[in-house]
Amino acid sequence: MSGDVMNAATGPELSTAGLARRQLHFILAVDCSGSMMGERIASLNYAVRSAIPAMRAAAADNPENDVLVRVLRFADEVKWTVETPVPVDQFEWTDLTAGGETNMGAAFVALAEALTPEKMPGRQLPPVLVLLSDGLPTDDAEAGLAAFMRSPFGAKAIRLAVAIGSDADKALLQSFIGNSDVKPLQANSAETLVDRIKWTASVPMKAASAPVGSSADNVQNLAQGVASENENGGELVW
């Protein structure tokens, strides 16, 4: 049968599926609307770039999994800047620019369309989604979020959000996370944004790749991690 191999010594068939490496999709959804212009988008670019080593290190700690990275930006338009999942070792960051409106609902729809078994074949760990936004959606974000949650992997994903600045719509970000124990990470300055992105680029990866059956503990750990991060709010600049 296709995909199986015959062990010449013992004879029994082994399924390669049992030995296949699992994939962990790490998706960044970045708000690139006009409100992100200036220092915020610059800080975000710097933060993601500087978080790449931490991502790779986290992936290295889980050698049994393939960590794949994608990046979705949303403003007037929703666009995958890294559409084909890229192994974290090969992932390079291209600076994003800001401008336009916050079509977050459309971004949720785009995520929903990507998080399907057809688009993500093989053995999958729960994907990790990190939403970074500083603003208020200017489209029907609730409808988009509902579509996202109906997607095959959307509801199962580990979802985190970083509220950039004090004016972000934290209620909506909380809805995206979908777990009241896990709060949005708050980033009120360039410095804390770097910390938050580094954290989201590494810690949730470990949670996602943890053994099956410990998901509750993982969520709890995530929640505690987020709370601990938020305690170190840093200077309120944004």
């Binding site: 006009g34 409100s35 212009m37 409106e101 916050t102 208020l136 959606p137 200017t138 719509d169």
Partner: peptide
């Protein structure tokens, strides 16, 4: 209101 505020922020971020 949310959309109005969001649009203002996006179109006049400064």
């Amino acid at each position: 209101r949310r959309c109005t505020l969001g649009l203002l922020r996006d179109h006049a971020p400064n």
